[in-house]
């Protein structure tokens, strides 16, 4: 599932962009190093293929519903992990631009969630493990299914983590994960089954396509590097998560606390608070209340003598009226430009 701009914080978005850029730069180097210029048009046309195949409805037996595929694993199998990752990046970039699917800020995160785990984790560790001792119908089937499921499980867990860390939802970590993982188990199964069906078909019709490419790919991927990278990522995520779990036992409670702190700031005014708020905004960490200890104290004291500490009717009203005014003004600006332009056009004609 695509991560969306609105759900992501600048820090998470930036970090994921950095991770994706790194992986992509390394992949470009690898593809260029192979000196296989043939691969470039192949990647281009395969990208378009996956884009088109994403639109096919696959009827799921015995359920009456139908599913789609993302195609990441298929790309890795046909093109190898590096070219596959780059191709996935192109597809997602085009979707972000032309369909606002996910969005440009979350693009880094989407490429990582949908491309990296599939191409650099599931493909080399799972699919290759199954097919390294030769190809058979069964190995292709299990390799594809497990690789797709595992890739998507890690990917969707990554979406959960990124969303929670970004702090735009009230959903608690556990609830969100419980929602996402089972859905993606089903999505992964469909993805794996379709991939397996396609790869088996190709393997029977033109075995060299499946065998040749993956042989090359095996030489390219250093398993040790992948495992090392995975370990680092796990420790990182684990660290963030355990910190998160220990300091904020309940995501919900945390967010409320956080929210009241924010409003407090706006309501109480004063030079100190203005500076604090500027500081907070510079850091682009508006949702995190852990920077300012002092503020918590103020809030705690207020909480005792006021039932709704965060509410100031004046702010609410001025926010509402001002918001409406701004909206109106923006609309008028648009209309004015529109009519001026129209007048100009008519003058020319």
């Amino acid at each position: 599932m695509h991560m969306a701009d609105a759900l992501i914080s600048p820090v998470v978005g930036g970090a994921m962009w950095a991770a994706t850029t790194g992986a992509a730069a390394y992949s470009v180097k690898k593809v260029q190093y192979d000196l296989d210029e043939k691969k470039i048009p192949l990647m281009g046309v395969m990208g378009a293929f996956v884009f088109a195949v994403q639109m096919i409805n696959f009827a799921i037996p015995a359920t009456g519903s139908s599913g789609h595929i993302g195609g990441g694993l298929l790309l890795a199998i046909i093109l190898g992990p590096y070219a596959g990752f780059l191709t996935m990046a192109s597809i997602l970039a085009i979707q972000a631009l032309f369909f606002a699917d996910g969005g440009l800020l979350a693009l880094g995160s989407n490429i990582f969630n949908l491309g990296f785990y599939t191409c650099f984790v599931a493909y080399p560790l799972v699919y290759k493990w199954f097919t390294s001792k030769g190809y058979s119908q069964g190995r292709l089937l299990w390799g594809s299914i497990l690789a797709a499921v595992i890739g998507l499980q890690i990917g969707s867990f990554s979406v959960v983590l990124q969303t929670i860390i970004s702090g735009k939802t009230e959903l608690a970590f556990g609830t969100f994960a419980m929602l996402m993982q089972p859905i993606h188990l089903a999505i992964g199964l469909v993805e794996g089954l379709v991939t397996a069906a396609v790869v088996s078909f190709i393997w029977k019709a033109r075995p060299e396509i499946v065998e040749r490419v993956s042989e090359k790919a095996l030489g390219g991927v250093s398993l040790r590097k992948v495992v090392a990278g995975l370990a680092v990522a796990t420790i990182m995520f684990g660290g963030i998560f355990s910190w998160f779990a220990s300091t904020r036992p309940d995501g919900l409670e945390w967010s409320i606390l956080n929210a009241s702190a924010m409003e407090e700031l706006d309501a109480s005014g004063g030079i100190y608070d203005t500076i604090a708020s500027v500081q907070e905004k510079i850091a682009f960490f508006p949702d995190y209340g852990f920077k300012n200890q002092e503020r918590k104290v103020i809030e705690d004291t207020k909480e005792t003598d006021n039932f709704w500490p965060s509410i100031d009717m004046g702010t609410s009203v001025s926010g509402l009226i001002g918001g409406l005014m701004t909206l109106l003004l923006a609309g008028i600006t648009g209309l004015v430009i529109y009519f001026v332009k129209k007048r100009k056009r008519e003058d020319i004609i």
């Binding site: 470039i40 990647m43 281009g44 990208g47 378009a48 088109a52 192109s90 970039a93």
Partner: peptide, 10 residues
């Protein structure tokens, strides 16, 4: 180039 080719062949 790869990005443009993908776009073209979509």
């Amino acid at each position: 180039l790869q990005f443009l080719l993908t776009y073209r062949y979509i």
